[in-house]
């Protein structure tokens, strides 16, 4: 059995009066890629944003239940939101590099967490860009604006930016939704390599993508987690009718 990295127990989420997640319990294992799939509005993104408390930004959002990252109680009284977010790197649906230079984009995270030494920052930037498979393409133009990059490059830059703060977990919210197939393939390739060092959780609309990149898959429907298991097993042999319908493309 693999070591458990994230453990959610009885997570309920409300947006104002509307409940978005119902009693979700889930263990996510260390150094694996876990996909969250399901039709739009099923709660998969809501669950993802619970992991690094990004739901805090949404007015009138309320979270109940227990979510542990190793020994850290994410919603506990003593929880330090900033260090949780440092521990959980996030990549968004649309690539959102800051309108600054490539270098500044990657260096920003370590900078706010106290790294001021220029040499050390240089080293982090190089290493993170290498890990995100972007270094060779941009090493000569680190001071150029990140907005000049292509869509796929931007997204890899955002991954490098997330890696630069040395997270343990990377959560990705449909990271390829706005990319072309070639750029998507590069990101998928990257994701499978990232799990050697990190635990990756990815929300995706693309069932094939989940099959290609993930070890485990959780299927969400109408705010409930319907089924969770090894990707290969679930795709070959879904236990629930709803999962089967979704996987065979009959709704969603």
């Amino acid at each position: 059995m693999k070591e458990c990295e994230i453990s959610a127990r009885g997570i309920n989420v409300w947006y104002g009066p509307k409940q978005a997640l119902f009693d979700v319990s889930l263990d996510i294992y260390k150094n694996t890629v876990t996909s969250l799939i399901g039709p739009s509005g099923c709660g998969k993104t809501t669950f993802l944003r619970c992991i690094n408390r990004m739901n805090d930004l949404i007015p009138f959002c309320r979270v109940e239940g227990k979510l542990m990252i190793k020994d850290t109680d994410v919603y506990g009284k003593e929880a330090d939101v900033l260090s949780i977010r440092k521990k959980v790197g996030m990549v968004f649906q649309t690539p959102n590099p800051f309108p600054k230079s490539i270098y500044e984009n990657v260096a920003y995270g370590p900078f706010i967490h106290g790294v001021r030494d220029k040499k050390k920052l240089d080293e982090i930037v190089r290493h993170s860009l290498q890990e995100a498979a972007l270094w060779d393409e941009v090493k000569d133009e680190l001071n150029k604006s990140a907005l000049m990059l292509s869509g796929g490059q931007k997204q890899r830059l955002c991954i490098a930016r997330a890696l630069a703060v040395e997270p343990e977990i990377i959560v990705m919210d449909e990271p390829c939704a706005s990319l072309d197939p070639i750029a998507t393939a590069k990101i998928e390739d990257l994701i499978t390599r990232l799990k050697e060092k990190y635990t990756v959780v990815i929300v995706t609309h693309n069932i094939q993508q989940a099959a290609r990149v993930s070890d485990y898959t959780a299927y969400f429907y109408l705010g409930k987690m319907v089924e969770y298991g090894k990707t290969a097993e679930m795709f070959e042999n879904p236990k629930e009718k709803s999962t089967e319908l979704y996987l065979t493309g009959r709704f969603g």
Binding site: F92, N96, F98, Y108, G109, A162
Partner: peptide, 27 residues
């Protein structure tokens, strides 16, 4: 200023004020 810059900065563990000072004010 698009909300996504605020999200990106906060998700890195920046505080709200750091986000305002380093991103929103310059933009």
């Amino acid at each position: 200023i698009p909300f996504s810059f605020r999200e990106a900065s906060l998700a890195l563990g920046a505080t709200k004020w750091q986000t305002i000072r380093h991103h929103l004010l310059p933009y």
